[in-house]
């Protein structure tokens, strides 16, 4: 194994990815990921000195002002505006959710129809 090669701190990465590994998985993973990282290491030899990064190619000032939208590169783009039919119906949100509750609002005695589009995704405690 190449000692210059980075070693994945799996415990740190699983925390970032919010992904537990069971015993079955983690046994093999370090070894397999090590092999893959050995392979990916070849990217170190690639000479990219003459390549501009994408950031160098974007015309930021004009892009932000909207002037760029008329130029060749951006002519297929549109302004970042919300379209009216883009949101899901409340019922769709409720039917897809594993655990959703509208009852807390219904018990308050407030006018039901004005409260119908509110509810909670029920989850376990957030703060330890």
């Amino acid at each position: 194994m190449d000692n210059d090669r980075d070693i994945i701190d799996i415990n740190h990465v699983v925390k970032l990815a919010k992904l537990d590994l069971n015993k079955n998985d983690s046994e093999h993973f370090s070894r397999e990921l090590g092999k893959i990282l050995d392979y990916i290491d070849m990217l170190k030899e690639a000479d990219v000195s003459k390549i501009n990064s994408v950031l160098d190619e974007l015309d930021y000032d004009n892009l932000v002002s909207g002037a760029a939208l008329k130029t060749g590169f951006y002519k297929d783009c549109r302004l970042d505006e919300c379209l009216p039919d883009d949101s899901f119906d409340f019922n769709i949100v409720v039917s897809n959710a594993p655990n959703f509750d509208t009852r807390p609002f219904m018990d308050t005695g407030l006018k039901l129809d004005s409260m119908l589009s509110y509810g909670f995704f029920i989850v376990p405690q957030v703060i330890e």
Binding site: L19, E32, Q125
Partner: peptide
């Protein structure tokens, strides 16, 4: 018990090996 565990457990049990890798 906690939200964090919910995320981690759901993803541990819901995803297969290659996806996790």
């Amino acid at each position: 018990q906690t939200l964090d565990e919910l995320y981690r457990k759901t993803r541990e049990l819901g995803f297969g090996k290659e996806v996790k890798r």
